[in-house]
Amino acid sequence: MSVKILNQFEPDKMKEIKDVYHSVGWFKHTDEIISKIFLRSDIVSLAVFEGRIVGVGRALTDGVFNATIYDVVVHQDYQRRGIASQIMRDLLEQLKDVSCILLVSTSGNEAFYRKHGMKNLKTGMARYLNPTLTEEYLE
């Protein structure tokens, strides 16, 4: 599958980006929220197939010591085709000189991230405002 990766948020492609999120049940991702999170992201990876955005990924970083990868998501209709791996490789390449790269996996996708060199943290901590997420992700 020939996928092109773009490294810039394109507001005119908002509907396609929102379709990616909504296809996997992430309905809180409105136009306003998508615009806000992508404009505040330092690193962007958009997977394009036949002119349509079918996958996204983004990261925040200080460019030296720390980075965090967020939202590696592929449209439901395009999953299991290696697109998420292409996004991860692109994000990791853009972050290759950063000392520590963090991410929080959605439940059930930990093995995917391990294939890309990610490992469990011994001292990782988090706080969620949403009680459902607290129950799912925190000890």
Rank of each mutant, 00 (worst) to 15 (best):
M1R: 01
M1D: 01
S2Q: 09
V3N: 06
K4L: 08
N7L: 04
Q8M: 03
F9I: 02
P11N: 00
P11D: 00
K15Q: 14
I17V: 10
D19S: 11
D19T: 03
D19C: 02
V20W: 00
V20N: 01
Y21Q: 07
H22M: 04
H22A: 08
S23R: 14
V24G: 04
G25Y: 11
G25F: 11
W26T: 00
W26P: 00
F27R: 05
F27D: 14
K28F: 15
K28M: 12
K28H: 15
K28W: 15
T30G: 03
E32M: 11
E32W: 05
I33L: 13
S35N: 09
K36E: 15
K36C: 08
I37N: 03
L39S: 12
R40L: 06
R40C: 03
S41L: 07
D42Y: 08
D42I: 01
I43S: 07
V44C: 10
S45N: 09
S45T: 07
S45I: 08
V48E: 14
V48N: 01
V48T: 01
V48H: 01
F49V: 10
E50P: 08
E50G: 02
G51E: 06
I53Q: 09
I53N: 05
G55Q: 02
V56C: 09
V56N: 06
A59R: 06
A59G: 13
T61M: 07
G63A: 03
F65K: 10
F65A: 13
F65P: 02
N66T: 10
T68Q: 15
I69W: 13
Y70E: 08
Y70T: 01
Y70F: 14
D71F: 06
D71N: 10
V72N: 05
V73K: 00
V74L: 08
Y78C: 01
R80T: 06
R80E: 12
R81S: 09
R81G: 09
R81M: 15
R81D: 11
I83G: 02
I83D: 08
A84T: 04
I87R: 08
R89C: 04
R89Q: 14
L92Q: 13
L92H: 02
E93H: 14
L95A: 07
D97V: 08
D97G: 04
V98K: 11
L103P: 05
L103C: 05
V104S: 07
V104T: 12
G108L: 09
N109A: 07
A111K: 15
F112M: 09
Y113Q: 04
R114F: 11
K115F: 00
K115M: 06
K115E: 11
G117S: 05
M118G: 09
K119A: 11
N120C: 10
N120A: 15
N120R: 14
L121G: 02
M125A: 12
L129F: 14
N130G: 03
L133N: 14
T134F: 13
E135D: 15
E136H: 10
E136M: 12
L138C: 13
L138T: 13
E139I: 04
E139R: 12
